[in-house]
Design a protein around this nucleic acid. Structure first.
Length: 474
RNA sequence: GUAGAUAUAGCUCAGCUGGUUAGAGCGUCGGAUUGUGAUUCCGAAGGUCGUGGGUUCGAGCCCCAUUAUUUACCCCA
């Protein structure tokens, strides 16, 4: 067999010990906040049936799903003596859309929200509603990797289903804010908008073009600017007059409440129908006002980080109410968190009328932000607290009971597995960031003493075992 | 899917207009020190120059192809 250079798939990464330690630091903070707000943990399988995943994320999303080839001979099926061709020449001519469902029935999960909805429907009889769950697991997207974008990455979701109370939206803002501040990412903006506000804007323009064209265009405003959006809309069949009216509405400035009032006035003059269920902007504005009131009553004090952003659209097609996104202002990175309310995601699995709302942190992007801003605490790395030096065979045997006592006292420790040069052993401790080295050569052993060296200072103390244990515990 | 950039030691990168034996820093290993790391000093190992072809007396350098990586677009955590 020829030797080959080892490699890992594009967009995936190994996490070494130091990186895992720092990732766990982030996971820990998020998990603690989720649990503090009453969310319970849930895990779902890596693989889902494609029928569960497809059609939930829009056309783009479907293309980004990783599909898993059926096991066995995926071209033929055998029942008894009858062999049936799974894929016919006609299928091949018809293209991938025709062939795919016949050779792949499973896929890697694309996010945690849809599997959650699936879980809720399958377990509706046993769950107590409103059901609050959090979930920290990897997801996969067959995207082109680039800065801050991976093909395998972790999401940390918190969702509630079975209530349409806007208290949940308000609590999402509270959780977002708490996590970011705990991580030291104080320069952030929590953006909030409402799908129905967008719907009302669409209606105010006179119903030209399609809603999705409009939404994706205005979502790009901060990226391509007003001219870019005008150009894009012109190409999608929007009149100049409509575009002007759009920017009148988008241009509303001021604080959260001011924006609400000015949009309300704008919708009234544009003649947006308040009772029109498909474009009920007034409901959207009311919802946002309600969330704001909840936050005030709770005593939320980070309003400078909360922004009602009329241009926030978000691509995932299942959102129906409030939508969220978080941007870290002093790092050039896509959003580190996103979410929103979905009124009928469980409806796709046969359980209509169950509203849910939730959001997700992208740990990998948070990690990149913390690293760029140097916000990791310095001491996340090592697990071993004490290295026991190994002089010679006799010393090795003598140190084993000591090792045991260290561990029973709760001190992470290891005996260097080979006898020999102390220089090498100290180098090992240094490279691994182990703070203490315990030595007992023949001299110390004769006196029933130990030498404890503090690596950072280089100081050594001669102590009894009891003193060593006491000192290392501190 | 579209467009650009890059590929030289374990890592980060030099390498002039195409010209002798391809270099540095860091890391690794050995020694100065057979009971002491990080600091200091001395030394050593480590290269099919991504792969395949072409041009040339001669290619790490020029040309073509290919693969991988990466950035941007689309979309998203």
């Amino acid at each position: 067999m020829s030797v080959q250079k080892p490699s890992i798939p594009q967009g995936t990464r190994d996490f070494g010990p130091a990186v895992v330690a720092r990732r766990n630091y982030i996971f820990g903070i998020i998990r603690r906040v989720f649990e503090k707000f009453g969310y319970a943990p849930l895990e779902t399988p890596t693989l889902e049936n494609l029928s569960v995943l497809t059609g939930k994320y829009g056309e783009e999303g479907d293309q980004l799903l990783f599909k898993v080839l059926n096991s066995g001979n995926f071209l033929k099926k055998q029942k008894g003596d009858v062999i049936k061709e799974e894929v016919t020449p006609d299928d091949l001519l018809a293209g991938p859309k025709k062939v795919l469902p016949k050779i792949a029935e499973k896929g890697l999960r694309y996010d945690l929200t849809v599997p959650f909805a699936r879980y809720v429907v399958m377990n509706r009889g046993t769950l107590t509603f409103p059901f609050k769950r959090y979930q920290i697991q990897p997801v996969w997207r067959a995207d082109r990797p680039q800065r801050g974008r991976y093909r395998e990455f972790y999401q940390c979701d918190a969702d509630v289903v079975g209530t349409d109370s806007l208290l949940c939206e308000a609590e999402i803002v509270l959780m977002m804010s708490e996590v970011l501040n705990a991580l030291g990412l104080t320069e952030h903006t929590i953006k909030i908008n409402h799908r129905r506000v967008l719907g009302a804007i669409y209606q105010a323009l006179g119903g030209e073009g399609t809603e999705t064209d409009l939404f994706t265009a205005i979502d790009k405003l901060d990226k391509i600017g007003r001219e870019g959006v005008e150009k894009e809309l012109a190409g999608r069949g929007f009149s100049e007059e409509a575009t002007v009216r759009l920017f009148d509405l988008l241009g509303v400035a001021g604080g959260f409440e001011e924006k609400l009032e000015r949009l309300l006035a704008g919708f009234v003059t544009a003649g947006v129908d308040a009772d029109n269920a498909t474009a009920d902007g007034y409901k959207g504005l009311q919802d946002l006002k309600r969330v704001l009131d909840y936050l005030r009553d709770f005593g939320f004090d980070k309003f400078e980080n909360l922004d009602f952003d009329v241009t926030l659209a978000r691509g995932l097609s299942y959102y129906t109410g409030c939508i969220f996104e978080i941007k870290i202002n002093n790092v050039n990175m896509g959003s580190v968190s996103g979410g929103g309310r979905y009124d009928n995601l469980t409806g796709a699995f046969g359980l209509p009328g169950v509203s849910g709302v939730g959001f997700s942190f992208g740990v990998d992007r948070l990690y990149d932000c913390l690293e760029e801003l140097n916000l990791f605490p310095p001491d996340t790395a090592t697990t071993t607290r004490c290295l026991v030096a190994n002089f010679d065979e006799e010393g090795e045997r003598a140190m084993l009971p000591v090792l045991r006592q260290l561990r029973e006292t709760g001190i992470s420790s290891e005996l260097y597995p080979e006898t020999g040069k102390l220089g090498r052993q100290f180098k090992y401790a240094d490279a691994k960031g182990i703070p203490f080295v315990l030595l007992q050569g023949s001299e110390e052993r004769a006196a029933a003493q130990f030498k404890l060296k503090t690596m950072s200072t280089g100081q050594e103390q001669t102590l009894t075992l009891a003193e060593v244990l006491a000192q290392l515990q501190a």
